[in-house]
């Protein structure tokens, strides 16, 4: 759709602003995922995260995800923004907003989009601990 958007940025994400960008008169609900940096993963304490993207390919993969979601769900608009660079605990790393006439399709599409994003979009996260760091490998 014309109002779909997908972006990668180094700047802090404003969740409300991203969610508001996709609203249309024919929509009745927007479902927004606010993914942020967790302090404890499997009991280990993370100090901060570093995200890195293969940016041109990541944008292409985001575009494909949006096309597939538009084909498979009764939704109107989608916005996906991923932040990269250094992120502190609690900061938003990814926002996915889906607007639709009825909420159920938006919930389902949002869940599908984050699941697919985590296995197809070439972005990697490094967890930095007090005593070391590790690039997290996905489950693809």
């Amino acid at each position: 759709m014309e109002q779909d958007f997908y972006e990668i940025t180094n700047d802090p994400l404003d969740v409300g602003e991203i969610a508001r960008r996709i609203i249309l008169p024919e929509c009745g609900a927007t479902v927004t995922l606010d993914g942020y940096v967790r302090k404890f993963t499997k009991g280990r304490e993370t100090e901060h995260l570093v995200y890195e993207a293969y940016e041109p390919m990541a944008l292409k993969e985001m575009e494909k995800l949006i096309q597939r979601a538009q084909e498979n769900f009764e939704i109107t608009n989608i916005g996906i923004v991923h932040r990269i660079g250094r992120l502190e605990i609690g900061e938003t790393s990814v926002v996915i907003s889906v607007a639709s006439p009825h909420r159920r399709a938006a919930f389902e599409a949002c869940e599908w989009l984050i699941k697919e994003l985590k296995s197809t979009v070439p972005i990697w996260k490094k967890e930095v601990y007090a005593d070391g760091e590790v690039w997290v490998e996905g489950e693809a």
Binding site: Y51, K125, V136, G138, E139, A140
Partner: peptide, 30 residues
């Protein structure tokens, strides 16, 4: 994982002069 010109590779594509290849571990964004 392996990509050719920013598309995932299946392994049997022919590689041409100037192609942009990339090699990386399973993605972990989100």
């Amino acid at each position: 994982l392996f990509s050719i010109n920013q598309e995932y590779s299946s392994g049997d594509e022919k590689i041409k002069e100037g192609d942009e290849l990339a090699i990386f571990t399973a993605v972990s964004g989100g």
